[in-house]
Each structure stands twice: as C-alpha cells, then as structure tokens.
C-alpha cells in the first residue's frame, strides 16, 4: 500500500504532497511580512539617500547620495546618543544579572513552597506591565515633592533629590525602572537554567561540599551560561529598542541625559521632520541589530545549523 491514495472521490491524487506544498503554507505569512516589513525597509533605505524634510516640501526630495550618512557619522550627537545607550546597557545589565541570579537561587532553594510559588508568579507582573505605564509610574515615584523615592531616602537621612530634572538623577531613575521591569526576566531565565541541573548530580555535590559558592561555580554555572548569553544579547537588542518608558518619563532630557538612540532618532524624524537623516540613522541602527541577532542565532540556536 502506498501513501498516494487514489480513491475515485479524489480528482487529484498526491494532493498536497508536492514539492511546492510548504510554499502554500508559508506564502501568506511570508508575503505579509514582506509587504509590512521588507518593503518599508527598502523605502527607508531609499529615503536615506534623499534630502527628505517634509516641513519643506517645496525643495522636493532630491537624491543626495551618501550625504545623509556622512552627516550622521560626523554628527557628535548621534555618537554620544549611541554611547549613552551603551552606558545604559553596561549599567543595567550587571545589576539585572546579579539580582536575577540571586532571585533564581532563592526560588531554586528547596522549602518555603507557598511563598516561593507566590514570588515565582509575581515575577511576571513587571514583565507584562505596559512600558509606557512603567514610565508613568516612574514619574510619580521619582517626583521631587511627593514621590515615594525621596520619602524612602529621607528615612535613611538623605535629602530630597530632584530626580527627573537633574542629569544624573534622571539617568538613575530610568536605570531603576528598567531594573525593576527586566530583572524578573533574568531571574526566570536563570531559574530555568538551574532546574536543568540533574537532580542526582546536585544532590551528590551538596553532600560533597557545604559551600554554596563551590556548588554554583562547579555544578550550576555550566547550566547557567546559555541563559546568560541569551540575556546579554536580548538585553542589548532591547536597549537599542528602548523607547516607551524613557519617552514617557523624561523625553530624553534633561538636556541629553537620557537621550537613548531610539529616542534620538524619533526626535530627528518626528520633531525636526528630517526624515532623510533619520532614515540613515535608522538604517545604521538596523545594521547593528542584524549583527546582534546573527550573533544570537549563531550562539543559541545550534539545532538550526
């Protein structure tokens, strides 16, 4: 018996087993992503080679070669914005990894069943909170006059800080809100890593040594490393994307203290309406992102290759 059933009711035997069958299933999704993803990207690429300021339509939108790119690459604001984004990344990442690991270890430790399940469930809350609303909450918490952050500081005898109107204060405030929102992400990833350690190996190691640090280093660490790689790469992409929370909290200010790259490009595009320059910046950001996601796939999806 072959699998090419030929009942008379079937006009076409082999129905749906041809070489092109996958295409029929894939085509709708691929075509859609092409129209909404690739086509606009090509449009942005074309725009990046034009002078395109929509507040001055009389000048037309002439092609100017690489002028926008030259302008962007020699624009010190663009570089300082990228640098600030990098500074933000290297500030939040260690805090999130350290806190996340501590939380994961607390959740992995045997005992305290009910409290542990409660803590495990509450971790989801920051992750689901609308990013813009996180910014609104930040505005309330870090208000100089009636914010709870200054109330907490005063308990320890520190004077009120004008968080959102000073350069360092605003940067610290967005760091704290980002740490709040994304530490649970690290914790959940590390917790998944810890639970991959085979039970008998962990038991044996616990009998061998009473040192928690030795256990962590020699037994658990290998299982945590893939998660750490994922966190490092995904967080870098997320920081390049970061817009909503910071836009609501500080609009990139005061001055340029929180002017992360996505905020900066948004301002060039939609406040100054210099879409040619903004497109060139966006294309450069896209190239950076593609490098990052190549890295992610190379390191974490071994099964695909």
């Amino acid at each position: 018996m072959s699998d090419t059933a030929t009942s008379p009711a079937q006009r076409r035997p082999n129905r749906g087993y041809g070489r092109w069958t996958p295409l029929w299933f894939l085509a709708p999704a691929v075509l859609t992503l092409f129209v909404i993803g690739i086509y606009p990207t090509i449009f942005a690429l074309v725009t990046s080679f034009r002078r395109y300021n929509i507040t001055r339509p009389r000048e037309g939108f002439p092609f100017i070669g690489f002028e926008n790119y030259v302008n962007v690459l020699t624009d010190s604001t663009f570089w300082s914005s990228l640098l600030l984004t990098a500074k933000f990344y290297v500030t939040v990442l260690p805090i999130q990894v350290a806190l996340g690991l501590a939380i994961a270890l607390l959740l992995h430790k045997p005992g305290m069943g009910l409290l542990k399940s409660l803590a495990r469930v509450t971790l989801v809350v920051p992750l689901a909170t609308t990013y813009a609303v996180v910014g609104l909450i930040g505005r309330l918490i870090f208000n100089r006059d009636f914010g709870v952050a200054n109330q907490a500081l005063s308990v320890f005898g520190f004077g009120p800080i004008d968080w959102l109107s000073t350069q360092d204060g605003a940067f610290a405030a967005i760091v704290i809100m980002d740490v709040w929102q994304w530490t649970p992400f690290c914790a959940l990833i590390f917790l998944a890593g810890l639970s991959m350690v085979p039970g008998e190996i962990e038991e044996a190691a616990r009998l061998e040594t009473s040192s928690k640090l030795a256990l962590l280093r020699h037994v658990q660490l290998p299982y945590l490393l893939p998660g750490l790689t994922a966190v490092m790469i995904l967080r870098s992409a997320d920081v390049l994307k970061l817009f909503d929370m910071v836009f609501v909290m500080t609009r990139g200010g005061p001055g340029s203290a929180t002017d992360l790259i996505s905020i900066y490009i948004q301002r060039v595009g939609f406040r100054i309406f210099d879409l040619g320059t903004a497109s060139a910046q966006a294309i450069l950001l896209l190239i950076l992102t593609i490098i990052i996601s190549r890295l992610y796939i190379r390191l974490l999806y071994r099964e695909v290759h």
Partner: peptide
C-alpha cells in the same frame, strides 16, 4: 527597533 519601521 520599531523606530526603523516607524519612519518609512
């Protein structure tokens, strides 16, 4: 980043 597609 959404800003890449938001412009075009």
């Amino acid at each position: 980043s959404p800003i890449v597609l938001a412009l075009p």
